[in-house]
Design a protein around this nucleic acid. Structure first.
Lengths: 232, 232
DNA sequence: GCCGCGTCAAGAGCAGTGCTCTCGATTTTG
DNA sequence: CAAAATCGAGAGCACTGCTCTTGACGCGGC
């Protein structure tokens, strides 16, 4: 009973096709995609969609989770392709992979990291996949710290209640990351998100035509701030 | 003829009231606000709104411009309140003002910096107000550079075509900013945007309850990277 | 084999949306 | 004062998400 026979399989295929068509509409309609339009494209009637997704929000949620997983996989694959000891290479590879995925799937990126839809509350199923990119970055820091190969330049140190917060967060993440290093890693993740968002949402300065170079440089700045060893 | 008499004045008042009501709806409905709902709240019929705004997008544009101006004014006021020579104080004041405005007006912030509405193309009238916050930050760098009081820590230097792009952009901005400094300033602006967005859009780590401290620290990190003189 | 059960697509329908047009009423203008 | 411009209301169109009902189909048990 590898397949609960025909019905279950066509159902799975239908769900996949609905998601594929919806993903296509997402590219043009953005977050406000029309169930009816999706149904029309499939030669169905709108009410038939509800056999597979209880609401439009549920369809969006499915797309969001898939997008998070796609981004996470791309990022983790880029990381895995690099020599574990090449910390800076991994940092750049991960950041470039995230940017590349965003440029290739702008609508899905906007769905993930754009303004939240007012009535829509992200289900718990999304928080896991959503953390894969930042956790990949943190993993690089963890490896570097464990190897004693991170040389952070002098800068403001976290203090007071923030230090305690960071310590607790570091404990949850494991690896014994110092508070200051964790904060700088989060700055790197924030910078990465900001860079991609600015570029995708059209607020990057048009006076910078060489966006690849700009991105690489800004990412390198954050790697410097973190203290990833610079290439010889 | 200070007033083209009654009609012109009530028209202006109507426009203001429509924007005020729409702003209120924005807080709950987000970007997809309903013209009809706004009209209902004003005891009018939806078609009457079209006497004042030719379309929903035009209403949104008006709100966007007002929001940009409000944010820009808040940011510039925070900058002006500080001693011109207190570069780091100005940096923090500007960043805090931006964050404060965003926290106070999350829906409007999302309208400005969230994912762009698919069919909506930002009119030219928005690009001027939109640049006020980053230009304020750049102004701090300009003042600091002119006074020779910026001591950037060693880090990756922009090179190749990026350096030329940055030089051209710096020339447009005036003040003779070095390429590397401009790039770091843009990193600061990117970080600021990312910090506020993460916090507003709910992706800040719940393990960091002291968000004010976190924000201040991350902003200080960027000030360090830029080379703003540290307090004694 | 066949029959009841569960699943499915289709259609009608409801409330809501942006937007257009027309029609009287009011105000401004010549 | 009359002509012209402006205004609010209402009807209407095409669209949306979603619900409910109806009839057709595949499924597992007898």
């Amino acid at each position: 009973m590898s397949a609960s026979s025909i019905r279950a399989r066509v159902r799975a295929e239908m769900i996949d096709e609905i998601k594929a068509v919806a993903r296509r509409h997402l590219a043009t309609d953005g977050a406000n995609l029309s169930l009816r339009a999706v149904a029309r494209d499939m030669g169905m009637v709108s009410s038939a969609i509800y056999r597979y997704f209880p609401s439009r929000d549920e369809l969006l949620t499915a797309l969001i989770i898939e997008a998070y997983d796609a981004l996470g996989s791309a990022v983790e694959a880029a990381d895995a392709d690099r020599d574990r000891a090449d910390l800076r290479g991994r940092w750049h590879a991960v950041c470039r992979a995230a940017r590349g995925w965003g440029l290739a799937h702008p609508a899905e990126y906007a769905l993930l990291y754009g303004s939240p839809v007012p009535g829509y509350a992200a289900p718990d199923a999304t928080i896991g996949p959503a953390q894969r990119p930042p956790l990949t970055l943190i993993g690089i820091l963890r490896d570097g710290f464990a190897a004693g190969r991170i040389e952070p330049p002098p800068a403001t140190e976290p203090a007071g209640p923030l230090r305690a917060d960071l310590a607790e967060l570091a404990a949850q993440l494991g690896g014994g990351l110092p508070e200051a290093l964790l904060a700088r890693g989060m700055a790197g993740w924030t910078q990465l998100f900001g860079l991609i968002s600015f570029e995708l949402f059209g607020r990057i300065n048009r006076a910078l035509p060489h966006r690849d170079h700009y991105f690489d440089h800004q990412i390198a700045l954050m790697a410097d701030l973190i203290g990833l060893p610079r290439p010889a």
